[in-house]
Structure formats: structure tokens, C-alpha cells
Design a protein around this nucleic acid. Structure first.
Lengths: 138, 138
DNA sequence: TTATAAATGCACTTCCGTTGCATTGTATTT
DNA sequence: AAATACAATGCAACGGAAGTGCATTTATAA
């Protein structure tokens, strides 16, 4: 089990108090969060710092960006089974129209998508919208 | 073959010069357009008018909105084979990372996506990113 | 033709993402 | 340990896009 410090170190990211806090916050969350979510969790910190921290994490594939169609970029930790740096590892995201939360369904791989001749597929973004398990009551 | 006037009439949308122009503009385009694209095409018209016109078209399922991950909302006519009002009719969109254009691949239906128990799927947004046929040269 | 309601245009606001720059903090070298 | 170099942080501001309120114009109906 790696400590957060060791993880950041292995990615050549300087360990700071702020970054540890943000990482822990992301780790606690089970859903993808917006920059505003992080902002609200850390009143003292500046928006820019949070923004740049997340971007740093993103570049080092510690978090991945999610575009769930709400128009607001969300972020989630690349945890167990999510190797964002590997192109073929694509999982889908589920956006709940009720609670407005977006979760990563890492265990659900995206099926092969065929595109017409001449088109080259490099990346796939798949967002399923509906009602999540917590809201459906099923 | 319906005229545009007849189409708008059938959807209970008042026929105006502006709306006819915008419809024709969308019909000519083979790719999804942003509001700015429309804005640039009609210098005289106000952004708000264009915005509201597109929204009106959207509500009446004359155009459909596309979120291709660029962060900017795009719109495209619901033409032949695209029945946006029917939930099951979901086609995929292709976004070219080279020319930045987004096209509707209406003939390519989205495969059945399985979601975990408790989750209810209502809508699916699938965007494939890569290189389009015009840019690939294949 | 007049009354009614919708469409348009203008101004403005809000929100998110992003950048520049000064300042603080961390690490490294002597 | 002090000095240096560089990265991280905080503050301010910008820009683009979406959206709203209100006055005015235009179209439909009585």
C-alpha cells in the first residue's frame, strides 16, 4: 500500500500540504467532483491553486477529467483498475438526472464501436444518463 | 417533400424570416455548429435571437444538441433518420481532433449498454474522437 | 384596424475556465 | 546555515459562452 506521499513522489510531483488535502478529498468522494465542489470544501484555498493542482494531477494521470454533459468539467481519482494513460482502458460514466451526481463505472468497459471507413477512432466518451442506484431505490 | 414553412407550421412554430434563414443555414451544414458559427454567419442578427431560435428548434425536436467534449454546445438538424423525440433512436457523434468538426453518424446506432443493478438508463451520449475521413485521407 | 401575443434586439449578469504576475514556500548548492 | 533557484500559492483580472429582463418591433387574430 503506497502512501500518498510516495505516489506523488513517484510521479515527480512535489508534496505539499495543499496537494495532500486535495488528494484526500478526492479519495473520500465516491463521485466525480467539480472544481466548485473542491472550492467549497476548502474555503481558505484559492480557486487557482485548486485548479492548477487538479490539472497537475491530471497530467500525471492521478485524476481523470469527465465530461458528463452538464457543461461543467468534473474530476475523479484514477483508482483501482483505472489506467487512464492506457488508451484502451475506457470505462463509462453514469450521470444521475435526479441527484446530479456522476459516477465512474470502472468495471463496465465500453464495447467496440465501429466507425465508417476513413474515420480513425482514438478516444471514446460514453456517458449514460438516467437514475442512479441511490435514487432509484431498486 | 415538405417546405420549411410547412415543417415549422406542423410544429406550431411561427414562421419568420430569421427562422427560415437559420434553418437553411443548418440544413446546408454537414457538421454540427456552435452558436458562434451561426452568429458569424448572420452579422446583422443578435446573439440572443439566434440563441432563442435554436432553443425553440430544439424543444420542437427540429435540431438536437450535441456535447462533443469541446466544452461548447453544438447543434445539428434532425434530418432523415433522426427522430430525436424517440428515446431509443440514439446515434453517435464523431469529433475530429484535427479539423475540430463534429458530425452525426446517424446510420451508426449505439449498441446496448449494460448498467449495474439499480441504475436506470434513460439517455446515452456517445462521442468518438479521432480523425475524420476528410482529414485522414483514407 | 385594432388588440393581442410572440419575436427580436439591446444591455447586462453569471459562471466556468484560464492566465499573468507578485509573493510565499520548498529544495538544492555552496 | 545562508544563499540561490525554482516551484507552488494567492490575488486580480480576462474571455467566452450561456442565460435573463425589458423595451420595441413584428406578426397573427379579432
Amino acid at each position: 500500500m503506497k502512501t500518498i506521499e510516495q505516489l506523488l513522489d513517484s510521479k515527480n510531483i512535489r508534496v505539499t500540504a495543499m496537494r495532500l488535502l486535495i488528494y484526500k478529498f478526492l479519495a473520500e468522494k465516491q463521485v466525480a467532483v467539480t472544481l466548485s465542489d473542491i472550492e467549497n470544501a476548502f474555503d481558505k484555498a484559492d480557486r487557482t491553486t485548486l485548479y492548477r493542482t487538479v490539472k497537475t494531477f491530471e497530467e500525471s494521470t492521478i485524476v481523470h477529467q469527465i465530461d458528463d454533459g452538464t457543461g461543467i468539467t468534473k474530476y475523479a481519482l484514477c483508482e483501482k483498475g483505472c489506467n487512464c494513460d492506457i488508451e484502451t482502458d475506457l470505462h463509462l460514466h453514469f450521470h444521475c438526472n435526479n441527484c446530479n451526481e456522476t459516477v465512474c463505472l470502472t468495471e463496465h468497459k465500453i464495447p467496440q464501436i465501429k466507425v465508417p471507413n476513413g474515420f480513425i477512432s482514438e478516444d471514446i466518451n460514453l456517458v449514460v444518463k438516467g437514475v442512479c442506484d441511490k435514487c432509484s431505490g431498486l
